[in-house]
Amino acid sequence: MDDAARLLQLVVNGAASGCIYGLIAFGFVLIYKATEMVNFAQGDIMMLGAFVAYSFIHQFGMNYWVGFGLAIAVTAALGFLLDAVVLRRVIGQPQFAVVMLTLGLAFIFRAGAGLAWTYDSVGFMTPFTNKTVNIGGLVLGQDNVSIIVGTLVLCGVLYLFFSRTRLGVAMQAASQNQLAAYYMGIPVRRIFSLIWAISAGVAAVAAVLLAPVSMIDVNMGFLGIKAFAAAVLGGFGSIPGAVIGGVIVGVVEQLSGYFLPPGFQDVTSNIVLLAVLILRPEGLFGKTIRKRV
């Protein structure tokens, strides 16, 4: 295989893992925009989504697509309950209290998944496992292509949802101005819980898309740390920014694994994160806004 093809393959692999980071970052940004909370447990919600899908598809032997849909529904319900039962109580506490709260929840989720399923790595068969697709002479794994296509489809669906449906517009309104949204008769609290549900559902999609390329285990949630780099790169308030940031982080990570000595690949996302914060804290797509007194 010549160099250009190898490079292209790396870029595609990177873009695929980057899409996963982007989808997790999507969850962060969605919640942050609406409620000003940062959910450090997002990666672990993805892990729960992966285990739920594993239960439906592998243990109960369901069809892949049925299991996929059920996993999204169950994880979204979990996200809804999480907001309604836990997070709503800490409104008014300082922002870092929420950071610590979600970190604590992440530990509980990890232990819960270990108890309910297993501490070992598991996996399930998908229609995309170990298949290749030939695009114009370039041979790519269907698993990676499915991740990229899946992310694009999901982004399209969510774009239509937020711009065209009543509920989506209500969500936009609630995250722009809570008080005005209340005055317009929008049930802001329920909307916020629904936003948590959507972001958990997106995490579940990321988990199922990731399943062909990675094993499922309780420590999967650490991917969430890499997703922070994606969210910050995209400006932490911009939803398309999060996904594009994720793709950039994923590609940079793959390329640094190829060109730099071993060990660098693990920290690339963190270095990107710090570099963005130092050089351009508003990210690629963010806006700087100063507080007026």
Binding site: V86, M100, L101, L103, G104, L105, A106, F107, I108
Partner: peptide, 9 residues
């Protein structure tokens, strides 16, 4: 860690 997490929460 899970007990730490629970107590923190």
């Amino acid at each position: 860690p899970s007990i730490f997490g629970l107590i923190l929460v």
